[in-house]
Design a protein around this nucleic acid. Sequence first.
DNA 1: ACATATTTGCTGAACACTCATTCAAAATAT
DNA 2: ATATTTTGAATGAGTGTTCAGCAAATATGT
Lengths: 232, 232
Amino acid sequence: MHLRLKKNSTAVRMKLTSAAQDATDTEKRGRKASKETRRQQLIEATIDSLAKRGYSETTLADVADGAGLSRGIVNFHFESKEKLLIATLQYMADEYAANWGAALDKAGDKAAAQLWALVACDFDRKICTKRKLAAWCAFWGEAKSRPTYQALCGARDVKYQEIFLALCQTLKDEGGYAYEPEGMTLALCASMEGLWLRLMMGDGLTREKAHAAAVEYLLVAFPTHFTREGPK
Amino acid sequence: MHLRLKKNSTAVRMKLTSAAQDATDTEKRGRKASKETRRQQLIEATIDSLAKRGYSETTLADVADGAGLSRGIVNFHFESKEKLLIATLQYMADEYAANWGAALDKAGDKAAAQLWALVACDFDRKICTKRKLAAWCAFWGEAKSRPTYQALCGARDVKYQEIFLALCQTLKDEGGYAYEPEGMTLALCASMEGLWLRLMMGDGLTREKAHAAAVEYLLVAFPTHFTREGPK
DNA sequence: ACATATTTGCTGAACACTCATTCAAAATAT
DNA sequence: ATATTTTGAATGAGTGTTCAGCAAATATGT
């Protein structure tokens, strides 16, 4: 069970919120945490549990313990375990999409630079954690038999793959390459997903090595556009 | 529950096994099935259940029903659910290894032909079924938190990847390519695993298209060795 | 300011249910 | 007759869900 002061904790908390109202948010911990903050906290605990124990052994008790809250809490903030898991997947999908969206914006308007950025951001520190990869993989494992998961995992690609394809097409025209762009794009995207899978399995593969492998692919596919250090 | 005749079913079964002792094995169904046959039967039912319901919803009751046998049967032939699942994964790993082993034998001794065969056999009818892919993926999802699964999923690569690397190395020397062979091999293997993942997800991707994408990769990586139709 | 009422967030014990496992009895094979 | 295989009901541990009640925060009254 988690320890928690009963009577006198009030005074402590009041002092904290008034004296050390430091920085960012008025809502931080204790009762004061807003609904959205709690949901966030529970989602993080869910990712932890998925990474640590896997999908099939993730229990609400474990999530609650991980968040330092009580047993019934999930059914209060989410309606059910199922809803919590869906919200968790949704959160990860949104984060992923936001990440490559931002990378694309920063990349300028040359196609080569954009493709490079898109590949690089998949191996970004923020996204490509063992913890997050394990959570993704846990959902993949269940996706086949759960349409909702499948939709959310797939939504990852709807826009993404279109952009990828368009970029490969552009580079092909620029460089006069001979390949068939659809197959090329598919193989490239699949390669990055496969690298994620291997990173998660953890055969001593590092983020850097995985990224280097993806880059190696870019080099052979688009030799006139890239060097190992980046777009020309 | 599964329906089953009680008293008179014996006669029916006897007639089947004596009159219609058709073809292959003396041991087929009914009591007569040997230990090994029953285990096999239960493993197949397990793969079915993994594919249909996913890892977390696969129950012994479902496996037993799928095999047309009673509830307690798994604990008789396997000691526990855990052991059944491990035996199932072991079976799939063995089948996979046997498949690429055979493909390699048939490919002759030219490195290009061998690599081509190795890539092709991953998309073979026998191996690359939705059913089997879903089962693989179910195990991948749990592998992170289960050393035993991880070992069996990883064993897939121990020899495999060595051979792959050696072949890429050979082709590089023959063709005077400029890439770094480790990264190249890793990206290629990862690409095929990623294609499996996508096949399983089922975005209207077919075995043929997935194979074509892998081939597209081979073409750009080893342009002097391959055409879309095969090794030169 | 202080007291009281109401709302909101949270708790944890109780409940219902699923499911792996056990085992005595039955069916079958040798 | 004995050994082996199979059955299916019983068992018990584990887990998601419910809900009455508690406590903090806020609103309202004096």
